[in-house]
């Protein structure tokens, strides 16, 4: 069924994004820039991983997919549909903050729309998650502003993280082959429409913070993630994530 395949693809990419970004954000736990930010990143990481769990649960309960632990911890790199933005390593707080800013505004807009999806389990979940994402975007916006207006150095660091992350952020909106089906079935109006709304939103915020929005018309979006072509960073991430669980395939933990 076309409708089912379309919804499944949407759920997988959303779940995979959430799991991998949650994993990345959890890398700050214990070593964040301030105790408050350490706690904030841990809390957002838990939310994201929780979202992944709930999305995989829908796949399990409504589409006959394996259970969330198998979907999250036992698939190969070639089965993941996350975008490249979430895969990039956690090396620097400016990049993590900007990634969180760019991704969570897209995520917030996506869930806002999905509240009205004709597929009830997803609409219900979207209503719930939307509220959580609101705190994430608020947090991102406050910190982007704080650091953009902190001093010259912090402003420059945030600006260069935005420039660096933007082509990857555009990869969030890599179109799916099911766009039309999703529109016809009144699930989701499509990645293109989402990107347009997102650009408007973040452009305003970036400029309000005194930063510059890169000219996205001349950027080459980093695509491929949705088709399971990944950066070289995903494989090691998954190897690390599954280190314990691979010790014994039949054990329960």
């Amino acid at each position: 069924m076309h409708r089912d395949e379309a919804i499944k693809e949407l759920l997988f990419k959303m779940a995979d994004d959430a799991l991998i970004l949650g994993h990345r954000n959890s890398e700050w736990t214990g070593i964040g820039p301030t105790l408050e930010e350490d706690i904030a990143f841990s809390s957002m990481a838990q939310d994201k991983i929780g979202h992944a769990f709930q999305l995989y649960t829908i796949l399990h309960e409504h589409f006959g997919e394996a259970n969330p632990d198998i979907l999250g911890f036992k698939r190969s790199e070639k089965e993941f549909k996350c975008c490249h933005l979430v895969e990039l390593p956690t090396v620097d707080y400016a990049f993590s903050l900007v990634r969180h800013f760019l991704f969570d505004y897209a995520d917030g807009l996506r869930y806002e729309e999905l509240q009205n999806a004709s597929f009830e389990p997803l609409a219900q979940l979207a209503k719930k998650i939307k509220g959580e994402i609101k705190y994430h975007t608020m947090h991102a916006n406050v910190w982007i502003k704080l650091l953009a207006q902190g001093n010259e150095e912090s402003k420059a660091r945030i600006q260069s993280a935005i420039n660096e992350a933007m082509p990857y952020a555009l990869g969030i909106f890599e179109p799916s082959e099911y766009e039309k089906t999703l529109q016809e079935e009144k699930i989701f109006s499509g990645e293109n429409a989402l990107q347009t709304k997102w650009v408007e939103t973040i452009q305003t915020l970036i400029e309000k913070a005194g930063l510059e929005m890169p000219d996205i018309t001349i950027l080459k979006p980093q695509l491929g993630g949705r088709k399971a072509y990944h950066t070289e960073h995903l494989k090691p991430l998954l190897d690390e994530m599954t280190e314990v669980v691979r010790m014994d395939e039949n054990a329960s933990w």
Binding site: S26, E27, T29, Q46, F73, M241, V245
Partner: peptide, 24 residues
Amino acid sequence: GTWITRAPNFKRKMALIAKVQDEV
């Protein structure tokens, strides 16, 4: 904290992040 990224399933991963977050 070094085991958060290796926790073997959803339940343990979320519990461990929450726990270490509490300690901070």
